[in-house]
Design a protein around this nucleic acid. Sequence first.
DNA 1: CCATTAATTTAGT
DNA 2: ACTAAATTAATGG
Length: 226
Amino acid sequence: MKESCAICKDRSCAVSILNDSELELLEQNCSEGMFRKDEIIFHQGSIISHIVYVRTGLVLEYLKGNSGRNQIIQIVKNRSYLGLPSLFGDRVNNYSYKALEALTVCYIDINTFKNLIKTNGNFAYEILVSVCQDSLNSHHRFLNINAKQTFGKVADALLYFARVIFENNTFELSLTRSDIGALIGISRESTTRALNKFQTEGIIRTTSSKFEILKPHMLQKISESG
DNA sequence: CCATTAATTTAGT
DNA sequence: ACTAAATTAATGG
């Protein structure tokens, strides 16, 4: 038995705007799903069948390269819709999504979702806000990273995890070193080297997947100076 | 079902 | 590229 969207504690900002009849419509056209860690939610190139809304858990958004070399685009937090730009800009999904931890999701019928956008301006506004924030965030991150050297990039990544994703200076991240490298466009080796340097300088503490940022201001400085 | 070992993946140099 | 460590899968009791 599915719990009501109206009382869902994980519902999106956009959904909290809907009135009773709209909520009922949404409820009748969506279903719940779960993913385990490392499961693929959907692949790039697949037809968009449903909107996937992430209620809990973190998701990796990436682009598969020709030679198994993946470009990681961003980490998607919970309470987000996956692949909205693809929904409105294309017929197929442009990116691939993988669960970084156990997820609970909702599948929403595309037409229901589109109709809500068309008929409820406030709902559409909230969706637009989230898509644009996401876009700005990503662009800034990519542009910043482009202008930086290895240490600056790694510092950037750590600050991104701590500030944007986890909102905490200690966090556990189920990304491999090469994944972190793929996120900022450097090699696995360089990632290791930078992380070790930061650790010996007492800026961070890390054991494989656990990270603790001891001196955020130092990372900030490294990030700014390149 | 649990314990050992084999195989694959990941980290570090 | 190579080695060590760690994680995961397979096997046998």
